[in-house]
Amino acid sequence: MDRRTFLTAASAALVARQAAAQAPARQWQSQSLTEAGFKPDASERIEKAFAAGELKGLHGLVVLRHGKIAMEHYFSGADEIWGDSRGTVAFNADELHDLRSVSKSIVGLIYGIALGEGLVPKPAAPVLASFPDYRDLAADADRQRIKIEHVLTMSMGLAWDESLPYTDPRNSEIAMERAADRYRFILEQPITRPPGEAWTYSGGATALLGHLVARGSGQRLGTYASSRLFAPLGIERFTWTNGMNGEEAAASGLRLRPRDLAAIGQLLLDKGHYGGRQIIPADWVEQALTERSQRSDGLRYGYQWYLGRDRAGDPWYGAEGNGGQRLIVAPKQEIVIAVTAGNYNQPGNSRLPLRVAREFVFGALAS
């Protein structure tokens, strides 16, 4: 969903943030398709569809059912790291992949962990109270009404447009990257409507959240994420691409393996609990997955997470990113779907993961 290609000096911007060895690697359990409640030919159908060119750009698929791996597939294809070409990559279970805007949803969880530790402002707090150097902005009474909750729900009421190509300097996220002070740039944008009135897609909102976590914890965002989320969840490796200001690109720079992305989905399904530890406060999981605002297409939004209902009316929640990155959690069916793909910046790139989920996962359930 981030639709990002910031091509200038992308390879120079890449900085690896390796997860600290604070927890053993996750030991995944697998089950047969029939044990998981899928039709016995479900995996074969995916392989045949890819070979026939029907799933162009698909790189990886991990499906969990009842906390165990039911399906896992990897393919070869052209890939990028934040817009920098990697050529053709033969993907496997150990290969990291750009998550693009799925990063936003994970930053939302990291913010909740930091909030539980008293390191970041509560949702009801005014945003500008965290930026005392911006006295001129704080003098604007209308701007003072913007709260952290409006940042979490992308409803700040500030002008922001990422509909332009990410090669266009008028794109708000690219303009943010090029600004001397990205946080002032975000907060000084013209007010277009009252905060909380409407959802507006904004990588700037997530950049603010990542910055507050880093400042509150006294650590880089990736370092804090490693110690509080990734390592406790048994995630051994990740990288987080830096933005042009040298800080992690909170909105789009995270790279994980598909299994580890699925593990985050399962963590939400388990109310933030894993390995005998409450990794994410259970109340934050509930708050993050509560409807707060709505996109123009009717899809609901919580705290950096998308919320919806399937055709039967059953709820799901998830995250999405440019190129076909997708995490879908269906609590009633106890299914977690992690998709990685390489259709970056292509029109309709969200159709691939949706087709995979609808036709080859939910459509393959035995009953």
Rank of each mutant, 00 (worst) to 15 (best):
T5P: 11
A12N: 04
Q27C: 07
Q27T: 14
Q29A: 12
L33E: 10
T34E: 15
K39R: 15
D41K: 00
I46H: 06
F50V: 08
A51K: 05
R65E: 03
H66C: 08
H73P: 10
F75W: 07
L96D: 05
G108H: 02
I110P: 00
G116I: 03
G116V: 09
L119G: 02
K122C: 14
P123E: 10
V127A: 05
V127G: 00
D133L: 12
D133N: 13
D142R: 15
D142A: 15
I146W: 05
E149N: 13
L152F: 03
L164A: 14
Y166A: 14
T167E: 09
N171R: 11
I174N: 02
A175G: 09
L187K: 09
P190R: 09
R193P: 08
R193A: 14
Y201V: 03
S202Q: 05
A205F: 07
G210W: 13
R220N: 12
L221K: 03
Y224T: 01
L229A: 01
P232D: 02
P232N: 02
F238K: 03
A251Q: 14
R255Q: 14
A263L: 13
I264P: 00
L267I: 09
H273E: 09
D283E: 03
L289S: 12
L289Y: 05
R292K: 13
L299M: 13
G302S: 04
Y303D: 12
W316L: 03
Y317G: 06
G318S: 12
N322I: 12
G324T: 03
R326Y: 15
I328S: 04
K332E: 10
E334G: 04
V339R: 00
N349A: 04
V361Q: 06
L365V: 04
